[in-house]
Each structure stands twice: as structure tokens, then as C-alpha cells.
Design a protein around this nucleic acid. Structure first.
Lengths: 182, 182
DNA sequence: GTCTATATAATGATAGAC
DNA sequence: GTCTATCATTATATAGAC
């Protein structure tokens, strides 16, 4: 799926990779949609856990950025969004997970910005979250196409910026209460 | 393609919509890949023209933002990136166009930030461009999935922010030389 | 330019033997 | 749980009549 797109995932090729017969795919998952959903759910759960760990760390913002910059993640997302574009059952699942995910990030970033004294007027938490996600996704998408103009510069800028915020965060009064230094 | 994904675009369905026989698709385009490329090229050219007009306007940033916020554009991009993910000929074409497009945006935004007195340390042009693209893409993608939490707030924030920059730009000395007020 | 006819190959899915 | 056998469907693409 990551290498050749979801359309390349067929019961036959899949079984071939497992050294088994195509019919077993249907035995285990019934339909191909069920298979795709199973893949998505497993990955979604892993993703939630990794995110929770990142948010609890002493460098939340940098960790969040790194998570969003996993190349497999971006291709995975594109493929499933494309898949969701014409399979109702899959779209529903993705939407539900994405909402859960978003809420979690949003709560954490809002708490963080408040503690840093960054007001809603300066930058609403939701803008910060969406900008971070958007930026990392665009970088990954372009990379997949072989376009990298200015990417290094952008990554360096973002990391420096987020690192400074994380530093201010760690040295803010009462930091240890919420997220103890490791 | 926009409604059901690229996999749903078959010679049969296409011919059906045109009230013709599937074989005519091959008569005109030979292969389905050639067809997809023709669609992409037409759209890409329109896109370049619209962008050039936006960059020449008196509210470049807002116009750029609006262009990036066209819902059809985002779905179109996702579908073609997914398509490019497993068709070499198509990937090459997308990459070439994207590079051209990026250079155009980058030159214009760089000139604009310089004129506004925003230094490279404050915000490198490429970061501004990628952040704008990323943010609008994420909004559109989520929208397509039915997720809209905080979107209104984000759009309002961005428009207000870009509007202020455009205002400063218009009132900067010598503005009329580069982009005459309409 | 548009059609009929056809070659060829892949797909998802089920039934039933072992 | 894994296999063989099989079906119905769909796809891309070409050849040739008109």
C-alpha cells in the first residue's frame, strides 16, 4: 500500500507475500474493506499511544513535530484519505479516529500555550496544531514526489522555534507538576 | 475522480457519462495513463495562470490563500499524489509542475516579505509558503472527511493576519511600482 | 469517428474437500 | 486452517467493419 498505492493491494498479491493462497485473505477478513479497516485500526491505535507519550514528554512540541514527520505516516494518510474518498465505511472510521486524535493534541497544546503566556490573539491553539500538521504533511508529500526545495531550511527553522518554546516551557514555574523532567 | 477516487475512473464509466462506447477513450487517449496526464496538464496550466493573477493583485497573500483553499484543488491533489504513488510517468509530470509552481510562489513571497521588512530570521519565505499551503491543505482534507473542529476560527485568524500584511504592503513606499493598485 | 467483436488478464468472493 | 476449483465481474486494449 505504501509503495504502490491501495489499488495495488489485492488478495492475490497479499497472499503471495505471505506464501499462502488468496482465499485465506477472505477467510480471515471476509472482504477487502474489512482488511483495510483492520490495518487502519491497528495503526491508529499505535499512533494514539505514541502521541500520548510525546505529549507527556519534556519536549512536547519537538516530539509532536517529529511524530508528524514520519514519512510512512504521510503516505499512509494519503492512501487512506484517497480510499475513504470512495468507500463509506472506511471514511467513517477515519473521521472518528481523526476527531479523537485532534482533541487530544488540541487539549495538550492549549495547556502548553497558556502556560507559556501566549494569548489567543497571538496564536489560537487550534491554529498552532493545524499549522504544525499541515507543514509536516506538505513536506512529506513533496518529498514523496521528489521535491525538496527549501525543506532543510524549513525543518531547521521549525525545530529551532519549537525547541525555544520547549525550553521556555521547561523553565516556567511549576512545570514539574504537570510533566516531570526525566 | 473527485467524487469517488481515481480508481473509479474507468474507460467504461467515462464513456457512459459521455454517452459513447468505452473504446473511444482509447481512440482519443490510447491508455488510461495518457488520459490522466491530459487531465492533469490542463488543470495544472489553469492553476499556474490563476496563481500568476493572484500574485499580481493588490492583495497577493489573501488571494494566494483563497486559491489554496479551493476544495476541488485539494481532492485533486490527493488523488493525483495517490496516483503518482504507483505510476512513474505521472509522478514525473506532477513533480515537474510542482517545482515550477513552487518557484513562482517563492519568488513572489520573498519579494513581498523583503518589502515588508520581515527578515529571514523572523520568517524565511519558504517557511511562509509551505505553512500557508500546508494549513490550507489540512483544512480541506479534514473537511473532506467531515472534520471541522476549529476550522472557522483558523480561517478567520489567517485571513485577518494576511489581510494586515497586505494592508502594510499596499501602504509601503513605492508599492505602485511593482503592483499597481486597481 | 464511431461502432461491434474480441483477446487477455486481473479482480473479489464462495463452495466444499481434507 | 488451508487447500482446489470455480464463478461472475470488471478492466485495459486492439482489430476491423462501416
Amino acid at each position: 500500500m505504501l509503495e504502490e498505492g491501495y489499488a495495488a493491494v489485492t488478495s492475490r498479491r497479499l497472499a503471495g507475500k505471505a506464501g499462502l493462497k488468496p482465499q485465506l485473505v477472505h477467510y480471515y477478513f471476509r472482504t477487502m474493506d474489512d482488511l483495510f479497516l483492520a490495518v487502519y485500526r491497528r495503526r491508529a491505535e499505535e499512533n494514539l499511544e505514541r502521541n500520548a507519550r510525546a505529549l507527556a514528554s519534556a519536549q512536547s512540541l519537538r516530539e509532536l513535530w517529529l511524530l508528524g514527520s514520519d514519512p510512512r505516516g504521510a503516505v499512509f494518510t494519503v492512501e487512506f484519505v484517497a480510499l475513504a474518498n470512495h468507500r463509506k465505511a472506511i471514511r467513517k472510521d477515519i473521521a472518528r479516529h481523526a476527531r479523537h486524535f485532534r482533541k487530544m493534541q488540541l487539549d495538550a497544546v492549549a495547556r502548553l500555550l497558556r502556560r507559556l503566556g501566549i494569548s489567543n490573539d497571538t496564536c489560537p491553539p487550534v491554529v498552532a496544531v493545524l499549522a504544525m500538521i499541515g507543514l509536516s504533511q506538505v513536506l512529506l508529500l513533496e518529498n514523496a514526489l521528489g521535491i525538496t526545495t527549501g525543506h532543510d531550511k524549513t525543518v531547521a527553522f521549525v525545530k529551532r522555534y519549537l525547541g525555544q518554546l520547549d525550553d521556555r516551557m521547561r523553565s516556567s514555574p511549576g512545570f514539574g507538576i504537570l510533566a516531570p523532567r526525566r
